[in-house]
């Protein structure tokens, strides 16, 4: 039997909001250690890696490893039915053909159950290599969201240039150009507002706005986002999910064909 319970269904709602624009369906790998999703978008330009640790759940039981193929749009519709304060429980039996979402109101006077059919999916086992990055930048997620949104007006891509002083985002197109420089914060008294740059080598990489604007949908999950960059390897854009796990987006830099 598989059962995972979260007191705050809002977390799962936000997780779905953060992946539904990139993935139409995905395999949820459930084991004793937690729930993991690794899936590429249809165009094979980005990869989503979601990790929810079992110890982050309020109740977690997984008797045997399960691979459950789920429609992300259907799951998203079901989670929209949960009240903001509801508790959510995911439940499936061994060799399941469906998964049940149970929403319980805080005073336990309302109990709603939604059953979703699982889908058969081709298993894509991806290996994410260990990489030491030339630059790792931590910054407020709201700032990153705003920069991606603002610069998207000027072109289809944004160039990230990182030095030890800070990071510069720039875009150019038919209407003109724009660039935004963020300096490393001198004193990180307020952790949520801090901009921290760890640089081994300066990097300059260009990424598609379309994908960046999908990644920033994870902004409501965490006040800070971490960007890890090296030449010729995918950008990693990471948001922590409270004490329960993280979502990482990988995006290949634009390379002139």
């Amino acid at each position: 039997m598989f059962e995972a319970r979260l007191t705050q269904s809002a977390i799962l709602k936000k997780v779905l909001d953060a992946v539904k624009d990139l993935l139409s369906e995905a395999t949820f790998e459930c084991s004793d250690s937690g729930i993991q999703v690794q899936a590429m978008d249809n165009a094979h330009v980005s990869l989503v890696s979601l990790n929810l640790r079992s110890d982050g759940f309020d109740k977690y039981r997984c008797d045997r490893n399960l691979s459950m193929g789920m429609s992300i749009s259907c799951m998203s519709k079901i989670l929209r039915c949960a009240g903001a304060e509801d508790t959510v429980t995911l439940r499936a039996w061994d060799s399941p053909e469906s998964i049940v979402f149970i929403f319980e109101s805080p005073n336990k006077d309302k109990l709603a159950e939604y059953e979703m059919k699982l889908i058969n999916m081709d298993q894509e086992h991806l290996g994410i290599p260990e990489t030491s990055y030339s630059c790792v930048v931590k910054m407020p997620s709201a700032e990153f969201t705003r920069i991606c949104r603002d610069l998207s007006q000027f072109g289809e891509s944004i160039t990230f240039a990182c030095t030890k002083e800070g990071i510069k985002f720039s875009a150019s197109g038919d209407y003109g150009s724009a660039n935004i420089k963020l300096a490393q914060t001198a004193d990180a008294d307020n952790e949520e507002e801090a901009i921290i740059v760890n640089m081994q080598e300066p990097v300059k990489l260009t990424f598609s706005c379309r994908y960046l604007n999908c990644f920033v949908k994870a902004g409501p999950l965490c006040n800070q986002v971490q960007l890890s960059m090296s030449d010729d390897v995918p950008l990693v854009c990471e948001y922590k999910i409270g004490d329960i796990g993280h979502i990482r987006y990988y995006l290949a830099p634009k390379i002139d064909d």
Binding site: H125, G127, P234, Y250
Partner: peptide, 14 residues
């Protein structure tokens, strides 16, 4: 495209 190839190569299938 090269970007797709880069990603496919980077996440080599196990």
């Amino acid at each position: 495209k090269k970007s797709q190839k880069l990603l496919d190569t980077y996440f080599k299938t196990k």
